[in-house]
């Protein structure tokens, strides 16, 4: 509708990370006194992945939703005091966790919920282990103790069209049931990443992050951990999620999201936001009963987009 203005606001906050000032872009919507819900994008992407959560009134009526661009992503330009172009961008677990906590501190968020997907999902394990008192709860979407095999040299190679490849290497991470326009937008967002940043994030994702022998270090009774993986996520499957929650023990819950994949918030926002409502109700104590092992579209009253619409020939007709 021409003239409609979305309620999202975008600003910049300065955050000291590794002793260096970083200018971090963030968008938010929701009441100032709402429970902060801090959202981390996936590897190589930016906060636009959360745009449909930021405009979902059912969520933003109660929660102050904040989504930021990690340094080097989206509108968070590299630090101007550093000669960053002389080295490969490489994200480590230490740096990633420090950055997230640094942003929460810089925004003075009181008892926030953290939520991230993919690398943002995996890092709930480090956050739970290293900063158990900083967050009210941690939601790891597409989260596992280990996610090997995606630190691939071709994702940053001069003979490869990495703009397109960094996107479409992720095409099959989404479920075929997700609406095509939303899957294509997710790819479009991927195509905006700077050279080498996706691969650099995947150093954390596939190399530095490995909690297979460390899950018992996490005390999820101090900070609840939700491991929420999509049925079509081939990198970190729902079974990987169950194993991760089991390894953590009390306080950790695994939920499988049916008919969705690795980018739930952007590949099928309507379905994901409905699923998320159940998780958030559990965190705030408004939900009766335990969360199910599998949550499906019919449980949240969402009708799926037809999975494979017949292409109509030009000029109409079947």
């Amino acid at each position: 509708m021409s003239g409609a203005i979305e309620e999202i606001t975008g600003r910049y906050v300065h955050v000291e990370i590794g002793g260096v000032d970083h200018r971090v872009y963030f968008e938010e919507n929701g009441p100032e006194d709402g429970i902060p819900l801090l959202c981390q994008h996936t590897a190589g992407n930016n906060c636009q992945e959360w745009r449909n959560l930021l405009t979902d009134e059912e969520i933003t009526d109660r929660f102050r939703v904040i989504a930021y661009d990690l340094p080097f992503h989206g509108k968070s330009v590299p630090p101007t005091t550093q000669r960053w172009w002389t080295e490969d961008y490489t994200l480590t677990a230490d740096r990633f966790a420090e950055t997230i906590v640094g942003i929460a501190d810089a925004l003075e968020l009181d008892d926030p919920i953290y939520m991230g997907s993919s690398m943002g999902g995996n890092v709930v394990l480090e956050l739970a282990d290293w900063y158990p008192d900083r967050f009210r709860a941690l939601i790891g979407l597409e989260c596992a103790a280990h996610s090997p095999g995606f630190y691939i040299d071709w994702l940053d190679h001069p003979h490869v069209n990495t703009t397109e490849v960094n996107a479409y290497s992720c095409w099959g991470l989404m479920a075929p049931q997700s609406p095509e326009e939303a899957r294509r937008e997710t790819m479009y967002l991927y195509e905006q990443g700077a050279t080498g940043v996706f691969k650099g994030d995947l150093y954390y994702y596939s190399v530095d992050h490995d909690y297979r022998d460390k899950l018992d270090q996490i005390d999820a009774e101090r900070c609840p951990v939700y491991v929420v993986n999509g049925e079509y996520d081939y990198l970190t499957t729902p079974d990987d999620g169950r194993e991760t929650a089991k390894g953590i023990g009390d306080g950790a819950v695994a939920v499988e999201m049916a008919k969705i994949g690795h980018f739930p918030m952007s590949e099928n926002p309507e379905l994901f936001n409905a699923y998320l409502g159940e998780i958030l109700d559990d965190i705030t104590g408004e939900r009766e009963g335990e969360l199910p092992d599998v949550i499906a579209p019919e449980d949240v009253g969402v009708e799926l987009h037809p999975p494979a619409p017949v292409r109509k020939p030009e000029g109409g007709g079947e």
């Binding site: 099959g172 479920a175 075929p176 079509y232 996520d233 494979a308």
Partner: peptide
């Protein structure tokens, strides 16, 4: 509607 994980080549 292909099943996971034979729904795409990668």
């Amino acid at each position: 509607t292909p099943p996971p994980f034979n729904h795409e080549i990668i």
